[in-house]
């Protein structure tokens, strides 16, 4: 059991957990992740480590409610526990003084990019950060990113914060302005990472993306997280999660992530119905049960 020391929403549907996990806190390096199982009947899902504190023995996880498991996780509060957390997994980001590094975070992906951005800055790089989201509320970790970057650009789809547009629009401008870029790290939704890869491929700029395919064990044992890298299968959990964006087959990534879409939908609907029932029961015990019986459950 892993105790939640603190749980707070940092954006609508996005929660930061500070969790007691001394072994993981001690070993975590930027770019690594954990696998979490919430309860006895839970699935195992990979999650981003935003940062860790070796002395306090805590790790921070940033979770966006998308499916059942993440929604269930985000219903947990300070003082609750998570059944299993294992890690840190995956290869750490390659950190050295590359020169100028552009760190790009889309939505909750910014949490994964943050520790690498901090390490890049520490290694002497000039760090240009571009983070974005659908709107102002969904741009996360802006102050934190400002603390470890030379420049921070914010983009939103609706223009409610920073530039109106996509993170890739800002990258294009940088490149068109002749900014010398030695490395790009992009973490976010697959279409964003694919767009970044297409843009930097022409310019021959080394580009790393952090992938988040379906995983189970996270140690290389199951092979479920295989991604096609120049026609050959590699495992995101042990060979990644960071890969050279120019070698990745993004279409296969999209295809494989859709494998359980129906089941995921069903899980989430069942869970929401359950929550609704619990809520009704708490409000008016007798009625909720009667309603449920009528539905034929």
């Amino acid at each position: 059991m892993f105790k939640i020391i603190n749980a707070q929403f940092i954006a609508p549907g996005i929660k930061r957990f500070v969790i007691e996990a001394p072994r993981i806190a001690r070993k975590q390096r930027p770019g690594q992740f954990v696998i979490v199982r919430v309860n006895e009947r839970g699935e195992r899902i990979p999650l981003t480590i935003e940062r860790s504190d070796a002395e306090k023995g805590t790790v921070n996880l940033v979770v966006q409610s998308i499916g059942k498991t993440t929604t269930l996780l985000n219903s947990l509060e300070t003082g609750d526990s998570i059944l299993d957390i294992v890690g840190p997994l995956g290869k750490p980001s390659e950190i050295e003084n590359f020169g100028t590094v552009v760190v790009m975070g889309g939505g909750v992906g910014t949490a994964m990019a943050y520790p690498t951005a901090a390490a890049m800055k520490k290694a002497g790089n000039r760090v240009i950060t571009i983070i974005g989201g659908r709107n102002k509320d969904l741009v996360i970790l802006e102050p934190e990113m400002r603390g470890v970057s030379d420049t921070v650009y914010v983009t939103t789809d609706d223009g409610s914060s920073g530039d109106k547009g996509l993170v890739t629009d800002r990258l294009r401008q940088l490149l068109e302005n002749g900014t010398r870029v030695d490395l790009v790290l992009a973490v976010g939704p697959i279409p964003m990472m694919r767009a970044v890869a297409d843009m930097t491929r022409k310019e021959r700029i080394k580009t790393m993306v952090s992938l988040n395919p379906i995983m189970i064990d996270g140690t290389g044992m199951c092979g479920g997280c295989r991604v096609l890298v120049e026609g050959k299968s590699e495992f995101a959990c042990v060979d990644g999660p960071e890969f050279d964006a120019h070698r990745i087959d993004f279409a296969v990534l999209v295809q494989r992530n859709a494998m359980y879409r129906d089941a995921e939908k069903q899980s989430l609907e069942d869970y929401r119905r359950e929550c609704e029932y619990e809520k009704q029961k708490a409000a008016a015990p007798g009625e909720a049960e009667a309603a449920c019986t009528l539905e034929g459950k």
């Binding site: 699935e43 189970i216 064990d217 899980s267």
Partner: peptide, 18 residues
């Protein structure tokens, strides 16, 4: 692993799908 460790054969009682 999905079947044995994760009980996917008992989906949706268990969360791991197959």
């Amino acid at each position: 692993t999905r079947i044995n460790l994760m009980h996917a054969y008992e989906f949706p009682k268990y969360d791991e799908p197959i």
